[in-house]
Design a binder for these strands. Structure first.
Lengths: 242, 242
DNA sequence: CGTATTTTTACAATACTTTTACAATCGAAC
DNA sequence: GTTCGATTGTAAAAGTATTGTAAAAATACG
């Protein structure tokens, strides 16, 4: 799976053989992975390392997986947890699910299936964060933003670009905010006009385009071949950057 | 299960015995449940009834579960789907997960486990909605699609192919969606024109063919011997891949 | 007023689509 | 096999719609 930025996965598993195998494969998928050899160490690492997902063996020395899970759920209701278990007894599974487990795999399991289940859980949890993150940063909250070699300062309404420091106008700032908020998603001219200008209904104005020309002049290395402010014919404009 | 408002669950299952059993139990949990006896009916009810979760049998008359799933994922990437399957072959499971399934249960399954897994999926999806409630919440259509060595990104209208990253046009995207939706089934030129272009009546235009040439240039290893976009003489074109 | 900013205008440049024209291929009849 | 007709492949030209952009006009603001 691409597009998934690197996520942190904590493997709580006492069999070093299995643990290392999983770690290797998860790293191969582009994630960070760490191993805890028993329950208490698992809890310690959960607190300090702040993982995005936990792969948890049920049978563990020192502190069994179920206890670890219950402890974690006390503090974080949503952290994805995938259980590995040698015995696939229905009762164990049911107990696990009622403790808020996200997935349960009986050993021996198919590696490809394991990896796909992990990706699925990560994707779901990313959806969770992405939406709540958008709500968290109120339109006015953002103060600085950096992309390419450019730095925007919304408090002073200035920008540091390859051409030096420039002063941004009110409308330019509005547009930039809109683009930043929707980074990676194309915005239709109509949307831009409605949200950024308060226009309504049919509009046949080129205002948006003119502003795009300006933004490109400010921030693009080669305004003729824009990288950050791309136009998508018959759709609108798309702002994105690495 | 507490705190769960009533949710709608669509059961797509041809065995009336199993279907009724599940429906009864889900109702007992406080949910609404409806049954579709085959794939096409499942799709119809998905469109009209707007369920919160789908329980999908793989083996179905009329239209198999996998096709139903792929069709749904084209329009709604996030709707929770739980697969039921008689055969638990690893390959089936893996195929299902890469098609975006959320959970996979092999028959015969434990009823309590099934119910708990359902609740888990519903809870997770509720978390999703609760946060996104602030923003616009149309169902999120499929954003990426992978076949052969190619990755399509429908939001940014780009594709990663063996020739690098290319920008897709609106019409190309429309066509690709059509093909993906009907993967494995041949599409007549006429159909393509009507659905993709809105043409009507008799048409003697070669437009479709020209687009096919382009798609092949983009995505085929050897455009002269297409594997993904095959033409079927006197019928039309057929898109398929492993 | 004078200045800064936004919007309109008008035309050029470009991207995309469709047509045209011809070559290649396939399938069936002989 | 060979031949013939219909279908498909494809380059290149022609057509169309969208976008880029300079410069003028309008608007806001002190």
């Amino acid at each position: 799976m691409k597009a998934g930025e690197k996520r942190r996965i904590l493997i709580v598993e006492d069999d070093p053989h299995i643990a290392e195998g999983l770690k290797l494969n998860l790293k191969f998928q582009g994630h960070e992975a760490a191993i805890a050899g028993n329950g208490t160490e698992g809890l310690r690492m959960w607190k300090t390392w702040n993982p995005d997902l936990i792969v948890l063996d049920i049978m563990l020395p020192a502190l069994d997986g179920m206890s670890v899970l219950r402890h974690i759920r006390l503090h974080d209701e949503r952290l994805p947890v995938l259980i590995l278990s040698a015995k696939g007894a229905p009762d164990d599974r049911i107990q696990a699910f009622s403790c808020g487990v996200d997935d349960y795999l009986a050993k021996p399991f198919n590696l490809a299936e394991f990896l796909l289940r992990v990706e699925r859980l990560l994707t779901r949890s990313r959806w969770n964060h992405e939406t709540s993150a958008a709500g968290a940063l109120e339109p006015t909250a953002l103060q600085r933003y950096v992309f390419g070699g450019n730095t925007l300062d919304f408090t002073t309404m200035t920008a540091e670009t390859r051409h030096g420091i420039i002063h941004l106008t009110e409308q330019e700032v509005k547009l930039l905010r809109l683009f930043i908020e929707h980074r990676g998603k194309p915005l239709a001219r109509k949307t831009l006009l409605e949200v950024g200008w308060g226009y309504t209904g049919v509009t046949a104005t080129r205002t948006v385009d003119i502003f795009l020309v300006r933004l490109r002049k400010y921030f693009e290395e080669d305004p003729q071949n824009p990288v950050f402010f791309r136009s998508i014919r018959s759709v609108g404009y798309l702002f994105d950057h690495p």
